[in-house]
Design a binder for these strands. Structure first.
Lengths: 341, 341
DNA sequence: TCCAAACTTTGAATCGTTTCATTGTTACGA
DNA sequence: TCGTAACAATGAAACGATTCAAAGTTTGGA
């Protein structure tokens, strides 16, 4: 009930030296079969569990990686976290997870905590610009990899997703399925992700001389915001024949307002595509086409890049940019036999 | 770049004894103003950060609490986690989060890890029945509080939500708004939560002599499962006038199939209520009434119960059961003027 | 000026592991 | 039987923070 057994207790109980117990745990080959068995029995009988603090203290480093995300509730990050945990487990490390909730002071607290824990390194999806803080961290021997943010390769490694490419993919798909009067629905373009997706879409539209792209500003990135944009469109008339929304929530909102008219059909009259491929996309009234971000690859690669930084004294930083993937569902099925599938 | 500064380095740099540096950090009142300033300057200049491993080793315990949930992606748990983190922060502890993903071996790995870390205690939403494991843990000085599971109070403390009461609330609300031919849609009743919610609903229905409750089995707890139950109902005819779904996803699926008929109206023809009050409930085509679980209270109370266990040598365990809360939205607005609001 | 009390500072001992130079043991060929 | 190589086991030292008894310093009253 009180103090748990130490390696010394095990050594006494098995009548061997402490070094031997340590060897059984860390280098079983160095120990004779007979001794090993005796020690293992003692471990079992005493319920001995390694004290990680002592181990770390001696080793000077932990087997732990800090990961700070903006919002664990966001499926994007949830998936990244899971992949990172699995990848870390493969190399014998554990992930300490921190949720900053877009809050700079929570973020800072987690950095402090992780630094006290002497994590091997840090993966972070930063709230704002914290390069000075990260520079300091690196000086103190805590390498960092940026997640979901493109970093200056001369200073940091990073993993991110090419939102411009994603926007291009989405718009190109609408064009390929025969749509020409496109609309982009997205929150404030001050958000980089939104701006990049729009830019990619514009690039695609420019490739078709007869295609147009209308930009509709939404008030946020929610279902409700999407619905009000949709309602506005329905009232206004002069509808586009293809709509690309900056995320799936917006798209689901637009879908609600369009289907509520009971006259507009998706995808026959209007095609609709979102972004993120959230769980709900597949189970929408009309299953929603979307752009899927390679979250597993992000998490895995972040861990790998960090491992490179940890291992080499003077690592070359790498900014790995992933290309997202088009997921076609019913909401963008071709409108007419004449166009491509 | 290499080894970070230790308390000894700080002591040398400030020309004081290590004990003094420690006092500056832990008992500032014991140190004279002059010395304190000198030490703090040295700390700053060297970029000293406490080594938590050494601290823990000496203290014999960490300032850390382990929390293992079944699925961090699930909004229910996400919210519990956040509340637990905040409550832990208030008492100066940090939460180590583990996601078992309903997987017993991942769960076991996390327990091992947390035990090596010498966490103060463990909050766990267990995959199966792991009371033997938990008994062992307690023997080794790691108290445990069960989360989202009712525990035998003689053995463990626990925090959970009364699903029977939630089911009662939902059905009672349908009855109060004038519905009499009710249906319950829920996955396999082998799931305790589902069974309890159904039981509560039945209890409410028994209170009204002229009310009936039909039980419709769903194939899982997803939007698609809800949709197929809904479709079945529409084809079959003889519709209920109030439907209670075991969770919001099912309810959204049912809503989809009903609204697709373009003839059935919610709530006029059929009222619909779900369970969990997920983010999507409010932004459904018809905003969905639901039962909200007090997740913040769960997380906070779990931490508090754990603190009790940690502090007292022989604590009295407590099983705290919370009552969920009815959230009324448009999907259950009263059908006729004659009935109550 | 002296003394006692109050306040500061000191530094060795401790926590539980891992490391590694040293010592002890065994096996085997000469 | 002896010498040596290979193999096992030993246990002191180290990691970095905290604790606490002891030593040192200051203060103020007599």
């Amino acid at each position: 009930m009180n103090r748990s057994a130490s390696i010394k207790d095990v050594a006494n109980h098995a009548s061997v030296a402490v070094g031997t117990v340590s060897n059984v745990l860390n280098y079983p080959d160095r120990v004779s079969q007979r001794t090993k068995e005796r020690v293992l029995r003692a471990i079992d009988e005493l319920g001995f569990v390694r004290n990680d603090a002592a181990r770390q203290l001696r080793a000077g480093q932990s087997r732990t990686i800090g990961l700070i995300v903006l919002d664990v509730g966001n499926p994007f990050f949830t998936s990244v976290v899971r992949a990172a945990e699995d990848a870390a487990a493969l190399q014998g490390s554990a992930v300490l997870l921190g949720d900053s909730g877009h809050n700079a002071s929570r973020e800072s607290n987690y950095i402090d905590l992780f630094q006290e824990q002497r994590v091997q390194g840090l993966l972070i999806s930063p709230v704002g610009d914290i390069t000075e803080r990260l520079d300091l961290l690196r000086e103190r021997g805590v390498p960092t990899v940026l997640v979901d943010r493109l970093a200056d390769e001369s200073k940091y490694s990073s993993v991110s997703v090419d939102d411009d490419a994603g926007g291009y993919l989405a718009a190109r798909h609408l064009l390929d399925t025969g749509r020409r009067r496109l609309a982009f629905v997205g929150g404030p373009t001050s958000i980089r992700q939104v701006a990049d997706r729009l830019q990619g879409a514009q690039r695609a539209v420019k490739e078709e001389p007869d295609a147009t792209l209308e930009v509709l500003d939404s008030d946020g990135q929610t279902v409700l915001a999407g619905r009000s944009v949709g309602n506005m469109l329905v009232e206004r008339g002069n509808l586009p024949d293809g709509i690309f929304c900056a995320n799936d929530l917006l798209a689901l909102g637009v879908m609600q307002s369009l289907t509520m008219t009971h006259t507009l059909r998706i995808p026959e009259d209007i095609a609709l595509i979102g972004y993120d491929d959230i769980d709900f996309a597949v189970s929408a009234v009309v299953p929603l086409s979307s752009i899927r971000q390679p979250t597993e690859a992000l998490g895995r690669t972040a861990i790998e890049l960090l491992a490179e930084e940890v291992e080499s004294e003077n690592p070359r930083h790498r900014a790995v940019v992933f290309t997202p993937e088009l997921v076609v569902r019913q909401s963008t099925a071709p409108a007419k036999e004449s166009s491509a599938g």
